[in-house]
Amino acid sequence: MKMTGTVIKYGDNVDTDVIIPARYLNTSDHKELASHCMEDIDKTFASRVKEGDIMVAGWNFGCGSSREHAPIAIKASGISLVIAKSFARIFYRNSINIGLAIVESPEAADAIAEGNIITADLDNGILHNETTGQDYTVEPFPAFIQTIIENGGLVESIKNGSIA
């Protein structure tokens, strides 16, 4: 899995209430959710995000509610990868289950700046900062998780019988 994108950066403890406020949870339409993504901490996000952009954040990204609408909104807005110092556990699971690529790296999340261009090679666990030339190594997913991702998410894994 490889992707290249421009970085949009946030801080620590970005919670699912700001990723997608509950007032929009009366729908599960992906496009509609994306149009309100991040709006309570960044009103400009939905209009400036481009297909393939990479989100970078601090500690405990995605804390709070279990709403799967949060990773769905991020993915539907065009974000190809989220790099954070750490993820809240339900958000982490949900991202894997719906096929949003996420990577934990305190070092990369510290060093990468807003607007940097990043190329991520997740199979080999390397993040390359095209803007600064720096490389960061990240831990690849465990085999169990890779099976789910290779099958295109949990739904597909159950459908094709690779998990039963």
């Binding site: 279990s66 799967e68 339900i90 289950n97 719906i98 949990l154 739904v155």
Partner: peptide, 18 residues
């Protein structure tokens, strides 16, 4: 423990979670 909707769907389908 809390999970997302896909885990819930999987739970409803096979009665298991990882």
């Amino acid at each position: 423990t809390g999970v997302g909707s896909t885990d819930m769907a999987c739970g409803m389908a096979i009665g298991k979670a990882w």
